[in-house]
């Protein structure tokens, strides 16, 4: 029996996006990013002191597959704010440098983008694959 209307992975991703005002889908974890683009995006969020949830897409290839189908965005990382896709590393970097990211995150008083952000310790990532 197959039920094509049921897609637990898709639903877990949608739930994670709706439950977390700022959520980053990345390769690796905030403490151990597995890709330079994910590392850079994490470092920017941390430099702003922005609380964010993180999902490592590497443990199960279906996470990335369903996420990209859902978001219509082919690459990782992907940052969502208030349920909307903000973009990947390039857009996050541009918005950080212009101050738009601080605005989007409601952090108008956050430090300006003068120096390269340094990675810091972060919270444990959400584990989508463990919710299924």
């Amino acid at each position: 029996m197959t039920d094509e209307s049921t897609n637990p992975m898709r639903e877990a991703i949608e739930t994670a996006i709706s439950e977390n005002p700022v959520i980053l889908f990345m390769k690796g974890t905030p403490n151990q990013p597995a890709c330079g683009f994910s590392a850079r995006t994490v470092a920017i969020l941390q430099s702003l002191g922005a609380p964010f949830a993180a999902v490592d897409i590497l443990p199960d290839p279906r996470i990335r597959q369903e996420l990209s189908t859902l978001s219509n965005w082919p690459t990782i990382p992907q940052l969502f704010v208030n349920g909307e896709l903000v973009g990947g590393c390039d857009i996050v970097t541009e918005m950080y440098q212009s101050g738009e990211l601080q605005h989007a995150l409601g952090l108008e008083n956050a430090p300006a983008a003068e120096t390269e952000p340094e990675p810091e310790l972060a919270q444990r990532p959400l584990s989508i694959e463990n919710r299924l």
Binding site: N72, W73, P74, T75, L85, V86, G87, D90, I91, E94
Partner: peptide, 18 residues
């Protein structure tokens, strides 16, 4: 939007990305 602009570029390459 930036998202739409970047999607336009991604669409040129499709599955070749990654």
């Amino acid at each position: 939007s930036r998202i739409a602009q970047h999607r336009m570029v991604y669409d040129v390459f499709g599955a070749e990305l990654g």
